[in-house]
Design a protein around this nucleic acid. Structure first.
Lengths: 237, 237
DNA sequence: ATATGAAATTGATATAAATCAATGGTTGAG
DNA sequence: CTCAACCATTGATTTATATCAATTTCATAT
């Protein structure tokens, strides 16, 4: 594991407030590893052995039932995933696969549980991180239940624009089929929705998104801090 | 606040492992109060001042956007809600209203935050509680994305049967319009879905549900521990 | 460059679900 | 007991979305 990785991990909200000795102990048992694109890192139902931290690349969290599956989130550097399962020592609810070549830090779940019992600051950070994750999923569920697919797409684009620093022009960064699945619709439906969204000020060509009329976009999907608000760090989709 | 309430609260997973002194201190600042039916206890967007514990009655958590709204959960005794907002000291993502006359325990959020900083056991309990809440919402989102409305209804009935100790006959306990909203569908659609579900072994008359053919029901919605698994205590719908 | 395979788009159609409208049933207040 | 209000149901219809099928586009490996 590279020293600058260590520094970056140390700066994560989850790790930055804990005692140095405890951080070092955690990292002692952890290891960084590179994985090729398309690798299934964990499968839903597996026992939760490691907290995963994305150092480089991108990881898709997805879930399946019967023969169906859907994208639940995409995590980019520097974000963590499956903290909750590790803490409760129960099976993962979601699977994870690399979307590109990725480097991950794997922190043994048992170490995690041991450390937050003796480091109050780390316990507080864990609480805050989990609360953030919880709220992110609640927002996702609200979006699914309160908006139709066209509105979800528009809100998604608006949010990506904000993540890009308010740019009116940005690239999507992930495949449209993943966005579609994340937003709870088919790729065909997303494609059609995007075409009709020029009515409200969004134009998309390939990976490039241009917001041609922010006022109309804002009128169409009034952004709501209680749905579109800031997520946990590293959580892209 | 009644002594037996106190005992019941003390037995909650969230509170049972903390030091007695700290529990007493928390309860010192807390107060129990009865509310009439249909009262809006909190509104989404409000600052999070109190952790709520349902001692008696039932509380609906719901969310709104534009002119729409939907039920996100129903909490019955003895369950807590809006822990995450209290911890992060940020606005509530959901509103809450009493479904019937209810008695609640209100614990000041600031006390909460102070106590888990000095009581490691309480911090661990909070972590575990939050992880459970997180997983409950993830399951809800998975259900919304992976199942159609008929399947969600069938799975809901199956789960209620299990909550009723595996009974093949049980009462719903909440209004159908709430169930519909919770499951992400209209009341009309729920009504129709229920009628067609006799095909797979479910019959509903009023509030009474009878599972007439468990095998067929299980074949139709193979229950999945990663979706239908046990929720946080007190979380009914 | 060209061939290959996956993603994205497009069109046609089917299905699921929402909406609108009307009716019947239940509950609680007076 | 009767009425009013709300919930639940039912039917007719519209709308949203999924599905199926066929191209086209794009990225990549050869």
């Amino acid at each position: 594991m590279r020293p600058d990785d260590l520094a970056e991990v140390r700066h994560l909200p989850l790790f930055r407030d804990m005692l140095k000795a405890n951080f070092d102990a955690l990292m002692q048992g952890a290891y960084a590893q590179a994985f090729p694109e398309g690798l299934e890192l964990i499968r839903q139902g597996d026992p939760a052995d490691f907290l995963h931290v994305v150092l480089e690349g991108a990881v898709e969290l997805h879930a399946g039932w019967q023969d169906r599956s859907c994208t639940m989130a995409v995590v980019k550097p520097v974000g963590t995933f499956i903290l909750a399962a590790c803490i409760k020592d129960v099976p993962y609810l979601m699977s994870a696969r690399t979307l590109e070549r990725s480097r991950l830090l794997l922190v043994p779940a048992s170490d995690l549980r041991a450390v937050f019992r003796r480091d109050a600051e780390f316990a507080v950070s864990t609480i805050t991180e989990l609360a953030g994750c919880y709220r992110a999923v609640v927002r996702h569920a609200k979006s699914l239940k309160l908006r139709n697919s066209r509105e979800r797409v528009a809100a998604y684009m608006l949010k990506q624009s904000q993540l890009a620093g308010g740019a009116l022009r940005f690239t999507l960064g992930i495949e449209k089929r993943l966005i579609a699945s994340y937003l709870g619709m088919t790729p065909e439906n997303l494609s059609r929705a995007l075409k009709t969204l020029d009515d409200v000020g969004i134009e998309v060509h390939g990976q490039m998104v241009t917001i041609t009329d922010m006022d109309r976009l804002l009128a169409f999907v009034p952004p709501d801090a209680l749905i579109d608000g800031p997520d946990a760090p590293g959580l892209v989709a």
